[in-house]
């Protein structure tokens, strides 16, 4: 009897490994091995053509002495911080408004979601035009008597333009919040109303705590994705209308758009400094891990899970 059970379990185990084998094989070939390899490469001066030699921490030291690298880190942090904060606030605001009993909610929902469907390449090119010095945004500002900046052509305004452009695609975060709102039991609000609390108190003490797990998810995804920003910057930075676009680094005016991934792309796939680029990749990984860990650690302070109450 016991033996039979064991045999059965053995078969179940074998089938388990069979079913997950695609991922296991893929993990070994495309994740585990490349990670070890790139970690090793980051300590070599290997370029694509000649076998490199071990140089210890040289790549990392060089990185810390390079102005371009600090610029890229600053730009990426600036982008990630403002994008995550603003998209969280804006998507929350729009979702709360749309939770109000209105006619035409489905239409509004579709309007706010559709920009998410536009490929990043296309939205980058489109906003290059929307923010053109003579484009619609500056025309609208001019209507109010404000002389608009040159946006992507200005060292100061290129990052804000990039952030506004990304906010156009907040649909995914917004849809999750909206469904979270619809899951909040109405009794909570009724009870609050009987207690005589105002709209702000309801928002602060019911809506935000109840939505905090969704906000948490959006923030984590937002951070991971925005720290890897590349396509938008590349498309805008290398456009021939951009000064130095077709010949320079493609990082926009004064490299004010240059991102970490873009620097990696330039060093690795244009200058073929693969060892150096691997070091950049590992710094990026460590940055992402630190931020994700900080968010996870802090989440106990500000997220609220219903299960805990029970």
């Amino acid at each position: 009897m016991k033996k039979k059970r064991k045999k059965k379990l053995g078969r179940e185990t074998a089938w388990f490994w069979f079913f997950i084998s695609p991922w296991i094989i893929g993990f070994c070939i495309f994740t585990a091995f490349p990670m070890l390899a790139s970690f090793y490469y980051s300590f070599t001066n290997w370029d694509m053509f000649q076998a490199g030699s071990f140089v210890g921490l040289d790549n990392y030291k060089k990185l810390l002495g390079e102005e371009m690298f600090f610029k890229a880190v600053y730009n990426t942090f600036f982008y990630a911080f403002f994008y995550v904060v603003l998209s969280t606030l804006l998507s929350l605001f729009v979702a709360v408004l749309l939770n109000y009993p209105l006619k035409g909610r489905r239409i509004f929902r579709t309007i706010f979601y559709i920009p998410t469907l536009v490929p990043v390449v296309v939205s980058a090119l489109l906003f290059f035009r929307v923010f053109a010095p003579q484009g619609p945004v500056n025309a609208a500002l001019g209507f109010f008597g404000i002389e608009g900046p040159t946006w992507f052509f200005s060292e100061t305004w290129s990052k804000p333009a990039l952030i506004i452009m990304s906010l156009w695609g907040l649909g995914t975060a917004f849809i999750l919040l909206l469904s979270g709102l619809q899951g909040i039991p109405g009794e909570l609000y009724e009870a609050a109303r009987i207690d005589g609390s105002g709209a702000w108190a309801e928002f602060r003490y019911i809506t935000v705590p109840m939505l905090s797990p969704v906000i948490f998810y959006n923030v984590v995804m937002g951070i991971i994705n925005s720290l890897q920003v590349f396509t938008q910057v590349y498309v805008i930075g290398t456009n021939p209308l951009m000064p130095g676009g077709s010949t320079g680094s493609g990082g926009g005016p004064g490299n004010s758009l240059l991102s970490i991934v873009q620097l990696l792309y330039i060093k690795g796939f244009r200058d073929y400094k693969m060892g150096y680029a691997s070091a950049i990749a590992w710094v990026l990984l460590i940055i992402i891990l630190i931020f994700t860990m900080l968010i996870f650690k802090s989440s106990a302070l500000w997220t609220y899970y219903e299960e805990e109450r029970k």
Binding site: F27, F30, T31, F33, P34, M35, A37, S38, Y41, I224, L227, Q228, V261, L264, G268, M274, A277, S278, I280, A281, W282, L284, L285, I288, L289, T292
Partner: peptide
């Protein structure tokens, strides 16, 4: 593995 940026594995791949 979802947290690992694709760039880390890109060069060896």
């Amino acid at each position: 593995t979802m947290m690992i940026p694709t760039q880390v594995t890109l060069i060896p791949q």
